[in-house]
Every structure is written in C-alpha cells, then in structure tokens.
C-alpha cells in the first residue's frame, strides 16, 4: 500500500449482524389488502387467460354478443343491421314510423300480409300517393330504398320487419326477392292505394 492511502480512514470494521427486529405488522396487512384488491381486479378484467379476449372487452361472455351467429339468428341479425342502416332513418329503429315522415311497419297490414309479393315490391320500386296503414292515410313518397340491396340482404330485412316489434309473419326468401326484382324492372314507383292493391298478393 502506498503512503497516500493513510489519508483515507479504514472502513469501520464489520459489525455484528443487527438484532432481527420483526417487520411492521401493518405492512403485511397492507400487502394482503393489496393482494385481495389485485385479485378482484384481475378477476373482473383479465378474461381469465382467454387468448381471444382483448381490451376493451373483459370476458368471454361479453365477446359472445358480438360474435357472428348462424342459422335463423344470423339471418335476423343481418336483417336488423341492414334495416337500421337503410330503413331505420324513416321508419324508426323501433318500426313505429315517424309522423310526417314514414308510416309504421310494426303492425302494418302491408307488412303482415300472407303473400309477400306486394311487400317485396315496395322497397324495390318505391311507393307514393295516398296509402292506408293501420286505418290512417299517409300521402307521402318513399324512394326505391331496397333496389340497391342484394337479394339476400333485402330478404333478410323483410324477414326481420315481419318478425320483429310484435310482428309475427313468415320469412321472405332471396328467391322471392329475385323474382320480384325481375318483374319490376324499369317500372315507376307504385302510385297510390289502388295500384298497390292491383298487385297480386
């Protein structure tokens, strides 16, 4: 060792290990409380290691609601989505119609008719002039809102309005829509109650 090191005091010698004073009790209680809260939070938000649950969803059941469905449920879901996008603005998402804008579809005799030929024609060509719906006369005009939809989509929409809001009538098939589309090609909107009634049921 060189001389200079004399200036540096040696470290105080190794001391005996101190008394092993216990850790404060409050500390363990805090830890337990935090652990409990953490477990609750994890339970509510983690989706329990399900690899398909991503933020902002918190569990598999919640996801289920948004999953594509099959069979009749799938058809209704598709009809509902298309209806709310295309028709709901005027007829209302609840199908109750809007005063001065569009007549109701819920409970409407035109929607519930056994034959679906007239009903299928309405969105394909449009409808204007005075029509009676549930004992009330509407003299407005509806453009051919369904003409741009595919056969399957329009069939789903019509099936949906025939089966929702208390309506209980059978489905409309894409084949029926296809046939109607061929029949109305190039025709003007149906004008008035007489013209509507003149169509085969």
């Amino acid at each position: 060792m060189s001389d200079e090191s004399d200036h540096i005091p040696p470290e105080p010698p190794g001391r005996p290990p101190g008394p092993r004073s216990p850790a404060p009790m409050g500390f363990f209680i805090l830890t337990l409380v935090l652990l409990f809260l953490a477990a609750v939070y994890f339970d509510h938000h983690s989706g329990w290691f399900n690899a398909q649950v991503y933020h902002p969803f918190v569990n598999a059941n919640e996801l289920e609601k948004y999953q594509p469905k099959s069979g009749e449920a799938a058809l209704l879901a598709r009809g509902m989505a298309t209806y709310e996008r295309v028709c709901g603005v005027c007829h209302g998402n609840d199908g109750a119609g809007k005063p001065g804008q569009a007549p109701p579809l819920a409970g409407s005799e035109w929607v519930l008719e056994n034959g679906v030929n007239r009903l299928t024609h309405i969105p394909l060509t449009g409808l204007s002039g005075a029509v009676d719906v549930k004992g009330q006369t509407w003299n407005l005009s509806m453009p051919a809102m369904g003409a741009a939809l595919s056969d399957a989509d329009l069939a789903a929409v019509l099936t949906y309005i025939r089966g929702s809001w208390g309506n209980k009538a059978g489905p409309v098939t894409p084949a029926q829509v296809k046939a109607a589309r061929a029949a109305v090609a190039g025709q003007p909107p149906i004008n008035g109650l007489q013209a509507l009634k003149a169509l085969p049921e």
Partner: peptide, 29 residues
C-alpha cells in the same frame, strides 16, 4: 395498457405494478 395483446397480459402487468407499492415502501422504510 394499450398493447394489442390478449387482455390478461396488460391486466396482470398493471396488477403487479400496483403491488409494487409494497417493495417500494419497504425499501424506503
């Protein structure tokens, strides 16, 4: 938290981070 991975990963991470309060306080004490 915004990571595009299954929810349990960020949730586990944030739970663990909340529990870090324990060692942090212990070190300070």
């Amino acid at each position: 938290q915004g990571a595009p991975v299954p929810a349990w990963l960020p949730v586990a991470s944030s739970v663990a981070a909340a529990l870090l309060l324990v060692p942090l306080l212990a070190v300070v004490i």
